[in-house]
Design a protein around this nucleic acid. Structure first.
Lengths: 169, 169
DNA sequence: CGCTTTTAAGAACGATCGTTCTTGACCGAC
DNA sequence: GTCGGTCAAGAACGATCGTTCTTAAAAGCG
């Protein structure tokens, strides 16, 4: 009963993730979202409660739909070189790529819930990489993958594998 | 002639860098700057022209006073382990640390001048690291150092050196 | 058809945004 | 001492911020 929705919630969340990834949380206004998403102001507040609510939904969905599958792909790799290559390729692409990175540096320091989402995503990457390198190296390798995403030109992280001795020292 | 300034420009720039590093460009308002810096609104606009002008000054000073000396310290290291250790230690500390990182993900995509500042700083780190590892690995190692700064808990990047075979393949 | 419920539309709210202006305080030079 | 010039103080600008409100439109159900 009642008037049906004229928009798909998942589609809206993904489009919002793009906007937040492109301009950051503070740099994206409600008007930007209303115009870019084609969803009415009141509907956004009805469904997500606030700008922050929409942001959290966007980040959570980004982690689930982009970072999660990436971690799974890493775990299915044959060796470290393949894992690093697919990590770089997969994380470089995707319209909302960089949302996790932006969330980590912009919002996580001031928002514990976002900090937890970010930490969980990073830990998932750690675990996926820990199978192909000495375990104490996993956080550094995750840092490499994340840091590579920052630079303008692609960073050949996969080459790193050729210089790292196999698992177990 | 004329009334002398009641503030030190360098000190103001460094304090502004702290604020921008903590809350980002969009997340730091002119009122935040006026309150946190103790400098009058009109004086800020007289000296720096605009909020962006102050931000560019802060980023440039941060690169010159923090990142530059770090690159010099790297170049003076004995081996890769020492270089990575000092990179992690030096870049982790400092009140404005992270400003470069935040500038790279938040402003560089939308501001060519900032993008150039960021790219130059990254390249300086690349060159400093290229002396201790295979040259094609330098960007990846810079990415590791940058990525490590993102995570909440310190990342032991220096351990990476123990697994990397010496320069020249 | 009427009633109920949910969404869409858009004006409107006070607060804050970056920026500018006006006024008076301060200092060196004459 | 007073004049010229720079800075400090703070009110004020229009624009935009996130959020809320009022009203109309669209569906299922009796």
């Amino acid at each position: 009963m009642g008037r049906p929705r004229a928009f798909d919630e998942g589609h809206v969340i993904r489009a919002a993730a793009e906007l937040f990834a492109a301009h950051g949380y503070e740099g994206t206004s409600i008007d930007d979202l209303v115009n870019g998403l084609g969803v009415h102001r009141g509907s956004l507040y009805k469904v997500f409660g606030s700008k922050r609510g929409l942001y959290v939904s966007a980040l959570r969905t980004h982690v689930e739909e982009q970072v999660g599958p990436l971690a799974a792909a890493l775990a299915a790799s044959g060796d470290l070189a393949q894992a690093l290559a697919s990590a770089a390729a997969s994380y470089d692409s995707g319209p909302a790529a960089g949302l996790l990175l932006l969330a980590a540096v912009e919002r996580a320091p001031h928002d514990p819930e976002i900090a937890e989402l970010v930490a969980d995503a990073f830990q998932a990457l750690d675990q996926a990489l820990a199978d192909f390198a000495p375990p104490e190296l996993a956080p550094a390798l995750t840092a490499t993958v994340l840091g590579a995403r920052i630079r303008k030109h692609p960073v050949p992280v996969a080459h790193l594998a050729r210089y790292i001795r196999p698992t177990g020292d």
